[in-house]
Design a protein around this nucleic acid. Structure first.
Lengths: 226, 226
DNA sequence: TCAATGACGATTGTCGACAATTGACACTTA
DNA sequence: TAAGTGTCAATTGTCGACAATCGTCATTGA
């Protein structure tokens, strides 16, 4: 059986990149694992050329690394890199938040509230997989960034989100209490509704710093174990 | 004569990407211009494969755009995009500045002061081309970001810097008074030496906002003219 | 005159092939 | 035994070729 699900109808390179990305953030391809061009091309039923281009694309997004003459490997993260990623996220999201305070439409805010209620619903069915939780959480924060109205910022945020997902998958746990997870977003929502930039910054800073500390701590454990 | 200078001794794809990048930020390749694979491959004396990979790399960096079945084009910027870029830069650089306040070593600060004196020297010989000025200016700000000690942030900043260079080249003017340009960096330097985060943020915010307003205004003019 | 159509050249998308390089493993030698 | 050496399979780097597609431009018809 193939690791990758079926393709749809767009650019082949993009498709391949998407599929590899999905396999990485889902943890099917493990960090450090080698991506053999020939093997992947057989998986996709193509030649090596589009696979190489897709891999280069992912390299630029930080999901795979590349060594000349050795090939592509699923990127590994260490604690320092994860700290940098979350630290950068703080900078980006606080900035986006300030912009959103000025630019967010009522529709943006309504959308965020809807998304927040989704976070709460996740716990009821308890069917909510770690993956679903993670996705809904990221969606909330992405919507906030989008409300900032800066397309370039959003692009960076999306790349960062991919790396965070890949890193978190590596850990496995996290997100153990969906109820609390949803609640921690309330102060953010409140500050935005009041359009209070300073309060929003503080709420976001705290919220993300907590996540950062958790993730970084877990990575330190992993490194000690390894 | 070739647009591109001679190569050195590393990975071919990287080399090609570097050369195309140089041609773009130097304005030899104009925005909207088509990048024909065959033509470029002849320029470099290679086949199309490495050129394609290099172009895809540049696409991910935002220097060229790509339309399926139509090929690669030097990216065009409009006023909104330039605003977004500078706005994002503000967020990044202020964040990096705050980190630098805590993490910058004495060597970092000494390096920044040396770079600042370079900015002053630029005017003496008056040989200082627009390109040199721009480069020295960017180097200063990059060093500041580097002093923040966040590799991931620095990577984003570098990509952004490329886009800014490409955009500024498109304008042509700017940087007309080297003396004043150097002086405007003093408040930044002062705040960092005092390790006063809030003051540094304000100095940077003002400094970059001025640049942003100039650039965006010039782009609005261009758009009106076009 | 102008819009629609069709053919053609130019360019991209993908492929399979071959040379160059790497890493591993067996083999020699002290 | 341990270090060094040579060989070999596996993989990457690059190439040239061909089919698919796009844009252009002349032609046709009203």
């Amino acid at each position: 059986m193939s690791l990758f699900s079926e393709v749809s109808t767009t650019d082949l390179v993009t498709q391949i990149a998407r599929q590899i990305t999905a396999a990485i953030v889902a943890g099917q391809l493990k960090p450090g694992e080698r991506l053999t061009e020939l093997q992947l091309s057989r998986e996709f039923g193509t030649s090596r050329a589009p696979v190489r281009e897709a891999a280069r694309l992912l390299e630029s997004q930080g999901l795979v690394t590349f060594s000349p003459r050795r090939g592509f490997f699923v990127r590994t993260f260490n604690a320092t890199e994860m700290r940098d990623i979350y630290e950068l996220r703080i900078g980006l999201e606080l900035h986006a938040g300030c912009l959103a305070v000025e630019r967010a439409t009522e529709a943006d805010i309504a959308g965020l509230e809807a998304q927040l209620s989704l976070l709460y619903q996740n716990q009821k069915g308890s069917q909510a997989s770690l993956e679903t939780q993670m996705f809904e959480d990221f969606t909330f924060h992405r919507m906030l960034c989008k409300a900032g109205g800066n397309a370039r910022l959003l692009k960076v945020y999306d790349e960062l989100a991919m790396e965070m997902r890949a890193g978190i998958t590596l850990i496995g746990k996290l997100y153990d209490d969906p109820q609390r997870m949803a609640e921690t977003h309330e102060p953010i929502m409140e500050a935005l509704k009041k359009r209070d930039g300073e309060e929003l910054r503080e709420a976001l800073r705290y919220h993300i710093a907590v996540a950062r500390d958790e993730v970084v701590a877990l990575f330190h454990e992993i490194e000690k174990g390894a």
